[in-house]
């Protein structure tokens, strides 16, 4: 049973980590908590449903379920990347020089708008995800059951996190992102196109959230327009736990949160499953506000 809860928790953790990355990257560069990020994840799940619905109608899912999954994930990532860039351009960039709380309120507004757009166009009832196969493939490992989908989720999450790490550490874009995170004005003085770097950050973060959305939709079986709220809070908790602004921290925070939630629900009380995340958030904020891997952030004057 321990192993099973661990597997369940790791799957969740991979998803939380993907969403947490978007929070932490945006915070690292703009010091903005992008409260609309959870809605991007929800939007990704809906795009996934629409894409998989089309693929099923065209007979692709029956012919190549794994490829269809990857294609749906890609479609959602591209779409949500574009939405993320648009949101940044329309809702955050005009407020770049405003008081720090102003873009925060704008973010809450974007979140409400996205929720309602999806509710009005897709309806408020739960949407059922198309099934990739009628009998899910499962493997028995030492008394626990692992589904193929769980392996996919963990695998895709790990691959994306690895790629992101390489992107930030090894590429010119990554270098520009790190420079912008340290000091946007200085970065622009030495020729870093700050606005383009910020757009790229939003595109990457939103695409990761969309991937998480599609995979979770498949994993749970249904989505509705409200799922971004709880997922957003949990991913935010993961980002804070790892140290907000710290990319490896968000990955670690996501995995730890998922595993703690799985084990807590299994051994403490299932009824308080969601409370675990919030207790962790409060404890981290009281005991170690910089998170597990965060450095002390000097106050900006």
């Amino acid at each position: 049973m321990f192993l099973q809860q661990l597997i369940n928790g790791l799957t969740l953790g991979g998803v939380y980590a993907l969403v947490a990355l978007g929070y932490t990257m945006v915070y690292g560069i703009l010091e903005l908590i992008n409260f609309a990020h959870g809605e991007i994840y929800m939007l990704g799940a809906y795009i996934g449903i629409i894409a998989l619905g089309l693929f099923t109608a065209w007979g692709w899912t029956a012919a190549a379920p794994a490829l269809s999954l990857l294609a749906a994930v890609a479609v959602a990532a591209v779409y949500c990347g574009a939405v993320g860039a648009t949101v940044e351009r329309l809702a955050y960039r005009p407020l770049r020089r405003a008081h720090r709380l102003t873009p925060l309120i704008s973010a809450i507004g974007v979140s409400i708008v996205l929720q309602n757009v999806v509710m009005l166009t897709q309806g408020s009832a739960d949407k059922v995800f198309p099934r990739l196969s009628d009998a899910p493939t499962t493997f028995a490992v030492a008394g626990a059951t692992v589904s193929a989908l769980q392996l996919w989720i963990v695998g895709i999450s790990a691959a994306l996190m690895g790629s992101l790490h390489l992107l930030i550490r090894k590429t010119r874009l990554g270098l520009a992102m790190r420079a912008t995170a340290q000091d946007p004005r200085m970065a622009s003085l030495v020729g870093v196109p700050v606005n383009r770097v910020i757009t790229a950050t939003f595109v990457i973060g939103s695409a990761l959230a969309a991937v998480a959305g599609v995979m979770v939709g498949l994993y749970y079986g249904v989505v509705n327009f409200f799922i971004g709220y709880v997922a957003g809070i949990k991913a935010f908790t993961a980002a804070v736990l790892g140290g907000i602004g710290n990319v490896p921290g968000a990955m670690l925070g996501g995995v730890i949160l998922g595993v703690l939630e799985g084990l807590g629900a299994g051994y403490l009380s299932n009824e308080y499953k969601d409370v675990i995340a919030f207790v962790i958030l409060i404890l981290v904020l009281i005991v170690r506000p910089t998170g597990l891997m965060g450095e002390r952030i000097p106050d900006k004057v």
Binding site: M1, Q4, Q5, N8, L12, Y219, Y220, G221, V222, V223, F226, I227, E261, G262, A265, G266, N270, E271, K273, D274
Partner: peptide, 20 residues
């Protein structure tokens, strides 16, 4: 015997305990 939360979408944790 246990409760689950209405609106929740992931019941794998409680079902794992049920299975045990």
């Amino acid at each position: 015997s246990s409760g689950v939360t209405q609106g929740d979408k992931d019941f794998r944790a409680v079902l794992t305990t049920v299975k045990a």
